[in-house]
Design a binder for these strands. Structure first.
Ligand SMILES: [Mn+2]
Ligand SMILES: [Mn+2]
Ligand SMILES: [Zn+2]
Ligand SMILES: [Zn+2]
Lengths: 125, 125
DNA sequence: TCACTATCGCAACAAAGTCGCATTAGTAAG
DNA sequence: CTTACTAATGCGACTTTGTTGCGATAGTGA
């Protein structure tokens, strides 16, 4: 399946590119100027995830957030191996530069991470 | 509001106590012998969380999981500051003994953590 | 220009969790 | 042992988030 370049796809991508924060489908839709169906936005986002263009974070509110992969692959082999931060005050989620370090009991194998720190961000302190 | 000792409450607590893994409302209900309404189980669980008896983990499947607080408070002031592990194979979630270490950009303040490692557990390797 | 099919819009659906409200049942006082 | 108070429960309705089926639309390359 070769990807096609559609207006919706570009709109979603630019919404994410113009944000320094991770965004939910809801936030992305609000930020877009063109009208795109909810299901379509999710499909576009999931396609981006499959293609490694963006990555998905499950926050402690149970919702999915999406962010551009800025050298996600470069740093290490584990995708998205950095912490995320959710601000209780401004309700935003952002990628932190801190890499997640952990030690495991024997026999465990980690495929991916979903690590979220929750608190107050620097703009809300 | 003083807590009352009810059969439902004890049933939920013993379901959690008899498990080495974190459990969802669904799993808890299945394990209980007495019939208790879904909403009631959630209310009991949330009360336990408020009282510091158990802690809640939001996994990367977006669902809430609950586990007894075994010396959660003792180790440090931050509640639930350890990693959790979700096995893709057996779909279980467990508390890991590893404490989460992180460095933050200036100005950020962390209230709580929700860190989940995803992969294959020792029983499924 | 044309055929192929990825993508879309829409509606229906599913899962997880919450909430209002009338009823039930702990608890402690009398 | 009563009785009054109210925490806790059951039930249904509801919300939110995300997915899926299907017919229609629109990129893409020949
Ligand atoms: Mn990230
Ligand atoms: Mn835990
Ligand atoms: Zn903030
Ligand atoms: Zn396992």
């Amino acid at each position: 399946m070769k990807r096609r370049n559609t207006q919706s796809k570009e709109a979603v991508l630019s919404a994410l590119a113009n944000s320094s924060k991770a965004m939910s489908q809801d936030a992305i839709e609000k930020k877009m100027t063109v009208n795109v169906d909810r299901a379509t936005i999710y499909r576009i986002l999931n396609r981006f995830c499959d293609d490694g263009v963006i990555h998905k974070i499950i926050a402690d509110d149970g919702k999915q957030y999406f962010a551009l992969c800025v050298k996600c692959d470069d740093s290490e082999k584990m995708p998205d191996n950095h912490f995320h931060f959710r601000c209780i005050n401004c309700q935003t989620i952002e990628c932190l530069p801190s890499i997640v370090n952990f030690s495991l009991p024997a026999g465990y194998q980690v495929d991916r991470l979903n690590c979220v720190l929750v608190g107050t961000c620097k703009d809300c302190a």
